[in-house]
Design a protein around this nucleic acid. Structure first.
Lengths: 168, 168
DNA sequence: TATTGTTATACTCTATAACTATA
DNA sequence: TATAGTTATAGAGTATAACAATA
Protein backbone atom coordinates (compact mmCIF):
# COMPACT_ATOMS: atom_id res chain seq x y z
CA UNK A 1 0.00 0.00 0.00
CA UNK A 2 1.38 3.36 -1.03
CA UNK A 3 1.65 6.08 1.58
CA UNK A 4 -1.00 8.62 0.80
CA UNK A 5 0.74 11.74 1.97
CA UNK A 6 -1.01 13.74 -0.73
CA UNK A 7 -4.52 13.19 0.55
CA UNK A 8 -4.67 16.29 2.68
CA UNK A 9 -7.29 18.98 3.05
CA UNK A 10 -5.06 21.64 1.54
CA UNK A 11 -6.57 23.84 -1.12
CA UNK A 12 -3.57 23.16 -3.31
CA UNK A 13 -2.55 19.53 -3.33
CA UNK A 14 0.63 18.00 -4.67
CA UNK A 15 -0.05 15.40 -7.33
CA UNK A 16 1.94 12.29 -8.19
CA UNK A 17 4.16 12.75 -11.23
CA UNK A 18 2.20 12.13 -14.45
CA UNK A 19 3.73 8.73 -15.11
CA UNK A 20 3.19 7.22 -11.67
CA UNK A 21 1.78 3.69 -12.09
CA UNK A 22 -1.86 3.70 -11.07
CA UNK A 23 -3.02 1.33 -8.33
CA UNK A 24 -6.33 -0.15 -9.46
CA UNK A 25 -7.11 -1.46 -5.98
CA UNK A 26 -9.56 -4.39 -5.93
CA UNK A 27 -10.59 -3.98 -9.58
CA UNK A 28 -8.21 -6.55 -11.14
CA UNK A 29 -9.58 -9.18 -8.74
CA UNK A 30 -13.22 -8.52 -9.70
CA UNK A 31 -14.79 -10.83 -12.27
CA UNK A 32 -16.78 -8.01 -13.84
CA UNK A 33 -13.71 -5.86 -14.42
CA UNK A 34 -11.71 -8.74 -15.89
CA UNK A 35 -14.64 -9.74 -18.10
CA UNK A 36 -15.03 -6.20 -19.41
CA UNK A 37 -11.34 -5.92 -20.28
CA UNK A 38 -11.30 -9.30 -22.02
CA UNK A 39 -14.51 -8.61 -23.90
CA UNK A 40 -13.23 -5.23 -25.09
CA UNK A 41 -10.01 -6.81 -26.38
CA UNK A 42 -11.84 -9.61 -28.20
CA UNK A 43 -14.54 -7.35 -29.66
CA UNK A 44 -11.98 -4.80 -30.82
CA UNK A 45 -10.09 -7.54 -32.61
CA UNK A 46 -13.34 -8.80 -34.12
CA UNK A 47 -14.25 -5.35 -35.40
CA UNK A 48 -10.78 -4.92 -36.80
CA UNK A 49 -11.01 -8.31 -38.53
CA UNK A 50 -14.42 -7.40 -39.99
CA UNK A 51 -13.43 -3.87 -40.99
CA UNK A 52 -13.22 -4.61 -44.69
CA UNK A 53 -16.69 -6.21 -44.62
CA UNK A 54 -18.11 -3.51 -42.32
CA UNK A 55 -19.86 -5.97 -40.02
CA UNK A 56 -20.24 -5.71 -36.25
CA UNK A 57 -20.85 -8.41 -33.69
CA UNK A 58 -24.62 -8.03 -33.46
CA UNK A 59 -24.95 -8.05 -37.24
CA UNK A 60 -22.82 -11.19 -37.52
CA UNK A 61 -24.95 -12.91 -34.86
CA UNK A 62 -28.16 -12.11 -36.72
CA UNK A 63 -26.79 -13.45 -40.00
CA UNK A 64 -25.66 -16.67 -38.30
CA UNK A 65 -29.07 -17.20 -36.72
CA UNK A 66 -30.76 -16.71 -40.08
CA UNK A 67 -28.39 -19.18 -41.71
CA UNK A 68 -29.24 -21.83 -39.13
CA UNK A 69 -32.93 -20.94 -38.74
CA UNK A 70 -34.26 -19.59 -42.03
CA UNK A 71 -37.74 -18.15 -41.80
CA UNK A 72 -37.64 -17.16 -38.13
CA UNK A 73 -39.71 -14.14 -37.12
CA UNK A 74 -38.08 -10.97 -35.88
CA UNK A 75 -39.27 -11.54 -32.33
CA UNK A 76 -37.73 -15.00 -32.30
CA UNK A 77 -34.36 -13.84 -33.61
CA UNK A 78 -34.12 -10.84 -31.31
CA UNK A 79 -35.24 -12.85 -28.26
CA UNK A 80 -32.72 -15.61 -28.97
CA UNK A 81 -29.91 -13.07 -29.18
CA UNK A 82 -31.05 -10.92 -26.26
CA UNK A 83 -31.71 -7.93 -28.51
CA UNK A 84 -34.77 -5.77 -27.95
CA UNK A 85 -37.14 -5.78 -30.89
CA UNK A 86 -36.87 -1.97 -30.96
CA UNK A 87 -33.10 -2.31 -31.36
CA UNK A 88 -33.48 -5.10 -33.87
CA UNK A 89 -35.55 -3.11 -36.37
CA UNK A 90 -32.90 -0.54 -37.42
CA UNK A 91 -30.16 -3.18 -37.16
CA UNK A 92 -32.02 -5.42 -39.60
CA UNK A 93 -33.05 -2.46 -41.78
CA UNK A 94 -29.38 -1.70 -42.39
CA UNK A 95 -28.54 -5.33 -43.22
CA UNK A 96 -31.53 -5.55 -45.54
CA UNK A 97 -30.55 -2.26 -47.20
CA UNK A 98 -27.26 -3.95 -48.05
CA UNK A 99 -29.10 -6.90 -49.53
CA UNK A 100 -27.81 -9.56 -47.12
CA UNK A 101 -31.08 -10.74 -45.55
CA UNK A 102 -34.71 -10.01 -46.43
CA UNK A 103 -38.15 -9.95 -44.85
CA UNK A 104 -40.82 -12.11 -46.47
CA UNK A 105 -44.50 -12.31 -45.66
CA UNK A 106 -45.57 -15.36 -43.67
CA UNK A 107 -48.58 -17.39 -44.81
CA UNK A 108 -51.25 -17.38 -42.14
CA UNK A 109 -50.17 -14.28 -40.19
CA UNK A 110 -50.06 -11.02 -42.06
CA UNK A 111 -48.53 -9.25 -39.05
CA UNK A 112 -45.39 -11.38 -38.98
CA UNK A 113 -42.43 -11.53 -41.32
CA UNK A 114 -40.06 -14.41 -41.97
CA UNK A 115 -36.38 -13.54 -42.16
CA UNK A 116 -34.06 -15.17 -44.71
CA UNK A 117 -30.54 -14.76 -46.00
CA UNK A 118 -30.30 -13.77 -49.65
CA UNK A 119 -27.83 -15.48 -51.96
CA UNK A 120 -25.59 -12.45 -51.48
CA UNK A 121 -26.00 -12.81 -47.72
CA UNK A 122 -25.02 -16.47 -47.83
CA UNK A 123 -21.91 -15.74 -49.87
CA UNK A 124 -21.00 -12.83 -47.63
CA UNK A 125 -21.51 -14.86 -44.47
CA UNK A 126 -19.15 -17.53 -45.79
CA UNK A 127 -16.43 -14.88 -46.01
CA UNK A 128 -17.33 -13.53 -42.58
CA UNK A 129 -17.07 -16.99 -41.06
CA UNK A 130 -13.57 -17.39 -42.45
CA UNK A 131 -12.56 -14.04 -40.97
CA UNK A 132 -14.19 -14.96 -37.65
CA UNK A 133 -12.29 -18.24 -37.57
CA UNK A 134 -8.96 -16.46 -38.02
CA UNK A 135 -9.93 -13.95 -35.35
CA UNK A 136 -10.90 -16.75 -32.97
CA UNK A 137 -7.66 -18.63 -33.60
CA UNK A 138 -5.64 -15.56 -32.62
CA UNK A 139 -7.04 -15.78 -29.10
CA UNK A 140 -7.12 -19.56 -28.81
CA UNK A 141 -3.40 -19.55 -29.54
CA UNK A 142 -2.93 -17.74 -26.23
CA UNK A 143 -4.38 -20.58 -24.15
CA UNK A 144 -4.70 -23.67 -26.32
CA UNK A 145 -7.86 -25.60 -27.17
CA UNK A 146 -8.07 -27.03 -23.65
CA UNK A 147 -7.80 -23.56 -22.17
CA UNK A 148 -10.56 -22.32 -24.44
CA UNK A 149 -12.82 -25.24 -23.52
CA UNK A 150 -12.22 -24.59 -19.85
CA UNK A 151 -12.86 -20.88 -20.32
CA UNK A 152 -16.13 -21.47 -22.18
CA UNK A 153 -17.29 -23.71 -19.36
CA UNK A 154 -16.50 -21.12 -16.72
CA UNK A 155 -18.15 -18.33 -18.74
CA UNK A 156 -21.22 -20.49 -19.14
CA UNK A 157 -21.41 -20.85 -15.38
CA UNK A 158 -21.41 -17.07 -15.07
CA UNK A 159 -23.98 -16.45 -17.78
CA UNK A 160 -26.41 -19.24 -17.01
CA UNK A 161 -28.92 -18.50 -14.29
CA UNK A 162 -29.30 -22.24 -13.76
CA UNK A 163 -25.97 -22.16 -11.92
CA UNK A 164 -27.23 -19.55 -9.47
CA UNK A 165 -27.47 -21.30 -6.08
CA UNK A 166 -30.15 -18.79 -5.06
CA UNK A 167 -32.40 -20.30 -7.69
CA UNK A 168 -31.88 -23.89 -6.64
CA UNK B 1 -27.95 -29.83 -38.60
CA UNK B 2 -31.62 -29.11 -39.15
CA UNK B 3 -33.09 -29.63 -42.60
CA UNK B 4 -33.79 -26.21 -44.03
CA UNK B 5 -36.87 -26.98 -46.05
CA UNK B 6 -38.19 -23.48 -45.42
CA UNK B 7 -35.37 -21.66 -47.15
CA UNK B 8 -37.04 -21.44 -50.52
CA UNK B 9 -37.53 -18.59 -52.93
CA UNK B 10 -41.30 -18.54 -52.49
CA UNK B 11 -42.93 -15.20 -51.92
CA UNK B 12 -44.80 -16.62 -48.97
CA UNK B 13 -42.68 -18.89 -46.81
CA UNK B 14 -43.77 -21.20 -44.07
CA UNK B 15 -42.16 -20.31 -40.72
CA UNK B 16 -41.22 -22.59 -37.86
CA UNK B 17 -43.76 -22.54 -35.02
CA UNK B 18 -43.11 -19.61 -32.65
CA UNK B 19 -41.60 -21.75 -29.90
CA UNK B 20 -39.10 -23.66 -32.01
CA UNK B 21 -35.75 -23.73 -30.19
CA UNK B 22 -33.33 -21.46 -32.03
CA UNK B 23 -30.07 -22.90 -33.35
CA UNK B 24 -27.33 -20.37 -32.58
CA UNK B 25 -24.90 -22.06 -34.95
CA UNK B 26 -21.25 -21.34 -34.14
CA UNK B 27 -22.01 -18.51 -31.69
CA UNK B 28 -21.86 -20.53 -28.42
CA UNK B 29 -18.39 -21.72 -29.38
CA UNK B 30 -17.05 -18.20 -29.98
CA UNK B 31 -15.13 -16.56 -27.15
CA UNK B 32 -16.58 -13.13 -27.91
CA UNK B 33 -20.15 -14.35 -27.70
CA UNK B 34 -19.54 -16.23 -24.44
CA UNK B 35 -17.71 -13.23 -22.99
CA UNK B 36 -20.56 -10.89 -23.88
CA UNK B 37 -23.17 -13.16 -22.26
CA UNK B 38 -21.09 -13.59 -19.10
CA UNK B 39 -20.28 -9.91 -18.84
CA UNK B 40 -23.94 -8.95 -19.26
CA UNK B 41 -24.96 -11.35 -16.49
CA UNK B 42 -22.28 -10.12 -14.08
CA UNK B 43 -22.85 -6.41 -14.84
CA UNK B 44 -26.61 -6.77 -14.50
CA UNK B 45 -26.13 -8.36 -11.09
CA UNK B 46 -23.71 -5.58 -10.15
CA UNK B 47 -26.16 -2.89 -11.17
CA UNK B 48 -28.91 -4.65 -9.24
CA UNK B 49 -26.66 -4.89 -6.18
CA UNK B 50 -25.81 -1.17 -6.43
CA UNK B 51 -29.35 -0.05 -7.18
CA UNK B 52 -29.95 1.44 -3.72
CA UNK B 53 -26.70 3.43 -3.96
CA UNK B 54 -27.30 4.38 -7.61
CA UNK B 55 -23.75 3.57 -8.70
CA UNK B 56 -22.68 2.01 -11.99
CA UNK B 57 -19.54 0.08 -12.83
CA UNK B 58 -17.58 2.98 -14.32
CA UNK B 59 -18.44 5.21 -11.35
CA UNK B 60 -17.35 2.51 -8.90
CA UNK B 61 -14.08 2.08 -10.77
CA UNK B 62 -13.33 5.81 -10.61
CA UNK B 63 -14.03 5.95 -6.87
CA UNK B 64 -11.73 2.96 -6.26
CA UNK B 65 -8.91 4.53 -8.26
CA UNK B 66 -9.25 7.76 -6.29
CA UNK B 67 -9.18 5.84 -3.01
CA UNK B 68 -5.94 4.14 -3.97
CA UNK B 69 -4.37 7.09 -5.82
CA UNK B 70 -5.55 10.33 -4.22
CA UNK B 71 -4.58 13.41 -6.19
CA UNK B 72 -4.38 11.82 -9.62
CA UNK B 73 -5.20 14.02 -12.60
CA UNK B 74 -8.24 13.36 -14.78
CA UNK B 75 -6.10 12.22 -17.68
CA UNK B 76 -4.34 9.68 -15.46
CA UNK B 77 -7.55 8.25 -14.03
CA UNK B 78 -9.33 8.03 -17.36
CA UNK B 79 -6.30 6.52 -19.09
CA UNK B 80 -5.84 3.90 -16.37
CA UNK B 81 -9.48 2.84 -16.71
CA UNK B 82 -9.64 3.03 -20.49
CA UNK B 83 -12.19 5.86 -20.42
CA UNK B 84 -11.89 8.75 -22.87
CA UNK B 85 -11.36 12.10 -21.17
CA UNK B 86 -14.43 13.39 -23.02
CA UNK B 87 -16.48 10.60 -21.45
CA UNK B 88 -14.82 11.09 -18.09
CA UNK B 89 -15.84 14.74 -17.68
CA UNK B 90 -19.64 14.27 -17.37
CA UNK B 91 -19.14 11.03 -15.44
CA UNK B 92 -17.04 12.83 -12.85
CA UNK B 93 -19.30 15.89 -12.90
CA UNK B 94 -22.18 13.71 -11.75
CA UNK B 95 -20.14 12.10 -8.96
CA UNK B 96 -18.88 15.50 -7.83
CA UNK B 97 -22.42 16.89 -7.89
CA UNK B 98 -23.30 14.15 -5.39
CA UNK B 99 -20.38 15.19 -3.21
CA UNK B 100 -18.41 11.93 -3.41
CA UNK B 101 -15.17 13.16 -5.03
CA UNK B 102 -13.87 16.64 -5.72
CA UNK B 103 -11.47 18.48 -8.02
CA UNK B 104 -8.72 20.51 -6.37
CA UNK B 105 -6.19 22.84 -7.99
CA UNK B 106 -2.69 21.43 -8.37
CA UNK B 107 0.29 23.48 -7.28
CA UNK B 108 2.58 24.14 -10.22
CA UNK B 109 0.13 23.50 -13.07
CA UNK B 110 -2.94 25.67 -13.17
CA UNK B 111 -4.41 23.67 -16.06
CA UNK B 112 -4.57 20.41 -14.14
CA UNK B 113 -6.83 19.31 -11.32
CA UNK B 114 -6.17 16.73 -8.63
CA UNK B 115 -9.01 14.34 -7.86
CA UNK B 116 -9.81 13.27 -4.29
CA UNK B 117 -12.52 11.42 -2.43
CA UNK B 118 -14.45 13.50 0.08
CA UNK B 119 -15.22 12.16 3.54
CA UNK B 120 -18.69 11.36 2.23
CA UNK B 121 -17.12 9.60 -0.74
CA UNK B 122 -14.91 7.49 1.51
CA UNK B 123 -17.85 6.46 3.68
CA UNK B 124 -19.98 5.72 0.63
CA UNK B 125 -17.24 3.68 -1.01
CA UNK B 126 -16.95 1.53 2.11
CA UNK B 127 -20.61 0.59 1.72
CA UNK B 128 -20.15 0.03 -2.04
CA UNK B 129 -17.24 -2.31 -1.40
CA UNK B 130 -19.35 -4.41 0.95
CA UNK B 131 -22.08 -4.64 -1.69
CA UNK B 132 -19.51 -5.48 -4.35
CA UNK B 133 -18.07 -8.26 -2.19
CA UNK B 134 -21.49 -9.86 -1.80
CA UNK B 135 -22.09 -9.54 -5.52
CA UNK B 136 -18.72 -11.12 -6.27
CA UNK B 137 -19.35 -14.00 -3.87
CA UNK B 138 -22.58 -14.86 -5.68
CA UNK B 139 -20.61 -15.71 -8.81
CA UNK B 140 -17.59 -17.24 -7.10
CA UNK B 141 -19.97 -19.70 -5.46
CA UNK B 142 -20.69 -21.09 -8.92
CA UNK B 143 -17.10 -22.17 -9.57
CA UNK B 144 -15.18 -21.99 -6.31
CA UNK B 145 -12.09 -19.88 -5.54
CA UNK B 146 -9.89 -22.09 -7.70
CA UNK B 147 -12.28 -21.72 -10.60
CA UNK B 148 -12.26 -17.95 -10.20
CA UNK B 149 -8.45 -17.84 -10.08
CA UNK B 150 -8.25 -19.95 -13.21
CA UNK B 151 -10.86 -17.77 -14.92
CA UNK B 152 -9.06 -14.54 -14.05
CA UNK B 153 -5.86 -15.97 -15.49
CA UNK B 154 -7.55 -16.94 -18.75
CA UNK B 155 -9.30 -13.56 -19.02
CA UNK B 156 -5.98 -11.84 -18.46
CA UNK B 157 -4.53 -13.77 -21.36
CA UNK B 158 -7.31 -12.47 -23.58
CA UNK B 159 -7.05 -8.86 -22.42
CA UNK B 160 -3.30 -8.48 -22.31
CA UNK B 161 -1.64 -7.71 -25.60
CA UNK B 162 1.58 -9.13 -24.19
CA UNK B 163 0.12 -12.60 -24.80
CA UNK B 164 -0.45 -11.88 -28.46
CA UNK B 165 1.98 -14.13 -30.35
CA UNK B 166 1.92 -11.67 -33.26
CA UNK B 167 3.65 -9.18 -30.99
CA UNK B 168 6.40 -11.53 -29.86
C1' DT C 1 3.84 23.95 -30.12
C1' DA C 2 2.03 20.67 -26.87
C1' DT C 3 -0.95 19.49 -22.95
C1' DT C 4 -5.16 19.69 -19.64
C1' DG C 5 -9.57 20.04 -19.39
C1' DT C 6 -13.77 21.10 -21.63
C1' DT C 7 -17.76 21.51 -24.96
C1' DA C 8 -20.20 19.92 -28.87
C1' DT C 9 -21.59 16.43 -31.91
C1' DA C 10 -22.71 11.89 -33.56
C1' DC C 11 -23.33 7.01 -33.60
C1' DT C 12 -24.24 2.65 -31.21
C1' DC C 13 -26.59 0.12 -27.69
C1' DT C 14 -30.10 0.04 -24.41
C1' DA C 15 -34.77 1.00 -22.33
C1' DT C 16 -39.56 2.67 -22.35
C1' DA C 17 -43.75 4.11 -24.17
C1' DA C 18 -46.97 4.26 -27.65
C1' DC C 19 -48.75 3.35 -32.11
C1' DT C 20 -50.59 0.13 -36.47
C1' DA C 21 -52.33 -3.76 -38.20
C1' DT C 22 -53.49 -7.69 -37.42
C1' DA C 23 -54.97 -11.95 -34.55
C1' DT D 1 -57.54 -8.29 -25.50
C1' DA D 2 -53.17 -9.76 -27.05
C1' DT D 3 -49.39 -10.03 -30.44
C1' DA D 4 -45.84 -8.58 -34.40
C1' DG D 5 -43.69 -5.01 -35.95
C1' DT D 6 -42.63 -0.24 -35.87
C1' DT D 7 -41.65 4.63 -34.46
C1' DA D 8 -40.11 7.97 -31.25
C1' DT D 9 -37.55 9.26 -27.41
C1' DA D 10 -34.06 9.27 -23.95
C1' DG D 11 -30.11 7.61 -21.50
C1' DA D 12 -25.46 5.68 -21.46
C1' DG D 13 -20.87 4.56 -23.86
C1' DT D 14 -17.90 5.61 -27.36
C1' DA D 15 -15.54 8.45 -30.96
C1' DT D 16 -13.93 12.70 -33.20
C1' DA D 17 -13.21 17.55 -33.65
C1' DA D 18 -12.41 21.78 -31.78
C1' DC D 19 -11.68 25.20 -28.25
C1' DA D 20 -9.58 28.01 -23.98
C1' DA D 21 -6.19 28.21 -20.68
C1' DT D 22 -1.82 27.09 -19.65
C1' DA D 23 2.74 24.95 -20.17
Amino acid sequence: MTVMANNTALDEAAAPPPDTPVDLGPLPDLLGYALRRAQLAVFQDFHHAMEAEDIRTAQFSVLEVLKHNPGLRQTQVSFALGIKTTTFVPLFDELERRGLPERRPIAGDRRAKGLFLTALGQATLARLEALAATHEARFVSRMGPAGKAHLLGLLHRLADRAFDPDLG
